[in-house]
């Protein structure tokens, strides 16, 4: 474990908690893409199948359980408890256009052709594009609540910190996983224009609004 990976995990955890609290406190999921949250729940489910069979450390197990629990709780709040506030008219990104190609790619490009490895690879590829419905929704509504932008910033930073972690592990631990690195680069690049807007607008105290 290195500082970049720990910072990345904490940033990821912060994002997940911020989103859950935002929905719970405001009792509203306005501006939140339920499709992205379903994709994230799918990412954690397919990645943590070895949660009970492959013990790595208490930290690893606890964090996986928190991620899984919060992901499903968020989906529950969006589609069940606060369904009335779900903005389905703007959450129209065709998620199947992500899941099907990612599923095919996981079959073709992986480290080992075994069920667990293919599902892990699927989760890595899916995570890199899972935010697209959310970013698409913001581009459609033309704006985002400030708390939502903080959620997105923390979520985007988590994988950017992981990229630094992989550089660190490459030099100090001779560790190298091309699939995770390439997917992580794609994932972080997708946030770039949001990062630009976040830094130039939200951090200047303005509301994030896109030229509609």
């Amino acid at each position: 474990m290195n500082i970049f990976r720990l910072a990345g995990d904490l940033s990821h955890l912060a994002a997940i908690i911020v989103l859950l609290l935002k929905i719970w406190k405001t009792r509203s999921c306005a501006g939140i893409s339920g499709k992205s949250q379903i994709l994230f729940a799918l990412v954690f489910t397919t990645r943590y199948l070895d949660l009970f069979t492959n013990f790595i450390s208490p930290y690893n197990t606890v964090m996986k359980m928190i991620y899984l629990g919060c992901a499903y709780a968020t989906v529950y709040l969006i589609y069940m408890k606060f369904k009335a506030t779900y903005d389905g008219n703007h959450d129209t990104f065709r998620a199947e256009f992500l899941v099907v190609p990612v599923g095919g790619l996981a079959f073709l490009v992986n480290h080992e052709f075994s069920p667990l490895e293919i599902l892990w690879t699927f989760s890595i590829y899916l995570e890199s594009v899972a935010i697209l419905p959310q970013l698409f929704m913001i581009s459609k509504t033309g704006e985002a609540e400030t708390i939502t932008t903080h959620y997105l910033f923390a979520l985007g930073m988590y994988r950017a910190l992981y990229l630094i972690n992989w550089i660190w592990r490459y030099y100090f631990e001779n560790f190298f996983d091309l699939i995770a690195i390439v997917a992580g680069c794609v994932q972080t690049i997708l946030y770039c224009d949001f990062f630009y807007l976040y830094i130039t607008k939200v951090l200047q105290g303005k509301k994030l609004s896109l030229p509609a």
């Binding site: 990976r5 995990d9 080992e112 892990w120 992981y162 490459y170 001779n174 190298f176 996983d177």
Partner: peptide, 10 residues
């Protein structure tokens, strides 16, 4: 570098 599946990561 040897490729290692990054299973110790979240």
């Amino acid at each position: 570098e040897k490729e290692m599946p990054s299973k110790d990561e979240l």
